[in-house]
Write a protein that binds this DNA or RNA. Structure first.
Lengths: 196, 196
DNA sequence: CCAAAACGCTACGTACCGTATCGATCGGCG
DNA sequence: CGCCGATCGATACGGTACGTAGCGTTTTGG
């Protein structure tokens, strides 16, 4: 039988350890943020010795970075839809949903302060999250321009900030809900400026 | 001579103590951010006993928030200008400038994670910072509607999020510069949707 | 089966937290 | 002027978490 190719193979100890540490870190981050994250709690939660964690990551900042990278892997590309408006709504809806209904929102809340003082962390976030989303917006805009929907001089970077900024503003500061209507409302408020 | 009405009167001990603490906190915040702020460093820098600090603020987060609120209150008032567009640009420019050129940006970066998990802190921030700015936007919008510039059904809360969201997005995540042109670019990108 | 690698466990020294205690200092008030 | 309450400085303390070191134990792979 091809079981070993269908089910994940029994992981070796090193892999099990790493998975357990990252999983415990995710849980603790979503519960109380990076501020209250401690290596000793991660050790207790994961059933791993504290020293084992320090053998893999030099500090809890690098551990948080690993969790962030893990999240990025699960970010899905955007489906091609009927019109730039709907495509942008779908893209933004994905972000709103991820931040509002998964622990990614809590993790982001916990990590954001670290991004300010940790250059490695902020660089990784910009390269693997921000750049990714700017790229998606760029693809959508390009198609919108070709279809004659959007203005050829559309500023992709600015549009990206106008779309995602309010989402994170709610998550971090204003405390507003990340509900299903938010994405469409933001897109419909911003897009007319860039429409032909 | 009217010296006592020109120069500040000699403050009593309580006032001197509080000023020294807040000043030392400001200095330390601007040097290394909230992340590396410790009560014991504030005590050493200000020449005040650690216990004296704890008699006034229950934690270093409340201390940092006190400094933040101090800044916000000296920034918010908006001049009445010629047209909603210019008034909004002025308002947003004030925020951009404060976040970009003073320690307020650093303080915000350090506090934002705590805002997610500390209810007292987030409530205080929403009441004393967010609500203040929403109110300013509301005043401007009201005048804009009366002058026939803006649509009567303008969503003030949404407009506020669309304006300030991208600013904080740069500060927290994208790492973009908080330059002088940013405020006008955001306003000009968002406002057409709400213009008659 | 046996070395090498990875891990668990315990024990440090350091830093900072937040609190308690007590003597010293300041400030208003008779 | 002198007193008394309020405030402050100094010190000590228990507690948490950091990051490192030493050593015995388990797992892995040749």
């Amino acid at each position: 039988m091809a079981v070993s190719s269908v089910l994940p193979a029994a992981p070796d100890r090193a892999s099990r350890t790493e998975v357990a540490i990252l999983e415990a870190t995710r849980e603790l981050l979503s519960e109380s943020g990076v501020r209250h994250l401690t290596v000793e709690k991660v050790a207790a939660r994961s059933g791993v010795a504290k020293t084992t964690i320090y053998r893999r990551w030099r500090s809890k900042d690098e551990l948080a970075l690993a969790v962030l990278i893990d999240f990025v892997q699960s970010i899905v590309p955007v489906a091609r839809g009927e019109g730039a408006r709907n495509e942008l709504v779908a893209l933004l809806k994905g972000a709103v949903n991820a931040l509002g209904t998964t622990i990614m929102g809590r993790v982001m809340q916990g990590l954001v302060s670290e991004l300010a003082t940790n250059d490695d962390l902020s660089q990784a976030f910009r390269e693997r999250v921000v750049a990714l989303r700017v790229g998606e917006v760029r693809k959508i805009v390009q198609r919108g321009i070709e279809r004659g929907e959007l203005r050829p001089d559309t500023d992709v970077d600015l549009l990206h900030e106008l779309l995602f900024g309010p989402v994170y503003y709610r998550l971090f500061l204003s405390g507003g809900a990340l509900d299903r209507k938010l994405a469409a409302r933001i897109v419909d408020a911003v897009l007319p400026t860039f429409t032909v």
